[in-house]
Simulated assay, not measured.
Amino acid sequence: MSLLLLDTASLYFRAFHGVPDSLRSPQGEPVNAVRGLLDTIAFLVTEHRPDRLVACWDVDWRPAWRVEAIPSYKAHRVAQPGAGPGGADVEEVPETLVPQIAVIADVLAALGIARVGAPGYEADDVIGTLTTRAVATGTGPVTVMTGDRDLFQLVDDAAGVRVLYPARGVRDPDVVDQARLAEKYGVADGDAYADMAVLRGDPSDGLPGVPGIGEKTAARLLADFGSLEALLAARDAGDARLTKTQRQRLLDAADYLAVAPAVVRVARDIPLPDADDALPHAPADPEALQALTERWGLRSSVQRVLTAMAR
């Protein structure tokens, strides 16, 4: 019962920036993100033949509990502080992408493709939870399609979890398994990748990391000590395997290291709404799909998805 999980926002952002905005509706509105995402779904379903498919959704792109722990978390992406529902920060999103997101949601519903999100959590947390459930119930393997390296932390060969990362495009993604993590990052598995990401930090998410400890040094330290937890225990014990400089850097970053793992690691057990994740073989609402197809000029892209699902 193979499961394909889509990091939907990362894919429609990628489509928006990668597909010409000359693709327009009959009324002249850009539909490049909609068309690009639908073509991506058609390709993935054709290529990987999943039994189950979920479009995971960012209900909260910058959860308060992560910001409380690290105030700089995604702060550079805030367009309007406190202007969203419930006083949430509004993300900086290109003006012509905003209306396309609602169209994407409507088309997925008409197709019958499950779209799952949760208040207070990011799509990454939805993906982490659905992956954990699939592994626990033996209903994998799980393939995650994302343009976000954060989700490499889910990679687990024994559990049948891998990530597709479109470094060269959706049609030729990196297949990220444990061998790829070892080759590219020098870490043994997804857990070690998450520990490395804490130490390294990530400017694109506003995570400072430990100054002076980059990706390669972090990987070496984790190889030597086995885990971030063991590394910090060695720091506190004055372990001789740490140089004086390394230990001092870890001590100076103690406040950050106390909270960063919870921010970097995806949630694994959040409450999610019930959803039928079976890959549909026909649209759930043909009339609505037809209306959306005509209104937005999506005929070829929708047909590609329908053909892929029918197979």
Rank of each mutant, 00 (worst) to 15 (best):
P26M: 04
P94Y: 04
V98H: 02
T40V: 05
L23N: 07
A9I: 01
E95L: 12
R49A: 15
A83E: 14
D58C: 06
K74F: 12
R62V: 11
H48T: 08
S25F: 04
V19Q: 08
A33K: 07
R14G: 14
I70L: 15
A69P: 00
R66S: 08
D58G: 01
Q80H: 13
D60H: 04
Q27H: 12
A83Q: 14
P50W: 05
Y12C: 03
S10L: 07
P50S: 06
R14T: 11
H17R: 10
P81G: 05
A75T: 01
P30E: 07
A64R: 15
R35Y: 03
G36C: 12
R49N: 10
E91T: 02
T96M: 04
A15F: 10
V19G: 10
D51M: 02
P50D: 03
R24Y: 08
G86S: 12
I70N: 02
H48N: 05
L37S: 06
G82V: 09
L53F: 11
L11R: 05
V45R: 01
W65T: 06
T46G: 13
L97P: 01
P26C: 04
C56P: 09
G28S: 11
R14W: 13
I70R: 05
E91L: 13
D89S: 06
A69Q: 12
P81I: 05
E29Q: 15
R62M: 13
Y73H: 08
P94L: 02
W57K: 02
D58R: 08
C56S: 10
L37A: 06
D39I: 01
E68P: 00
G18H: 07
V19T: 15
T8V: 03
L44H: 00
T8R: 09
V59G: 00
A79M: 09
S10T: 14
D58M: 07
R66M: 10
L53T: 07
I41Q: 00
D89L: 09
S72E: 14
Q80P: 00
V90Q: 11
P20C: 02
L53H: 08
G28F: 09
I41Y: 01
D21W: 04
V78C: 10
P71C: 03
T40I: 01
T96Y: 02
K74A: 07
D21N: 14
P63M: 01
F13T: 01
G86E: 13
W65N: 09
V93G: 00
H17G: 15
V59Q: 07
W57A: 03
D51I: 00
S25K: 08
P85K: 14
W65L: 10
D58Q: 10
W57M: 09
R24L: 15
Y73V: 03
G18S: 15
A69F: 05
H48S: 01
D89R: 08
D60E: 14
F13N: 07
E95S: 11
L44M: 08
Y73N: 02
V67K: 11
G86M: 13
S10G: 12
A15K: 06
T96E: 15
G28I: 14
Q27Y: 02
V90C: 06
R52N: 12
P30D: 07
P63C: 00
G87T: 11
L44Q: 02
G84Y: 12
A9V: 01
V54I: 12
F43N: 00
V31T: 15
F16M: 08
T8Y: 11
V54G: 05
A9Y: 13
S25D: 06
G36R: 03
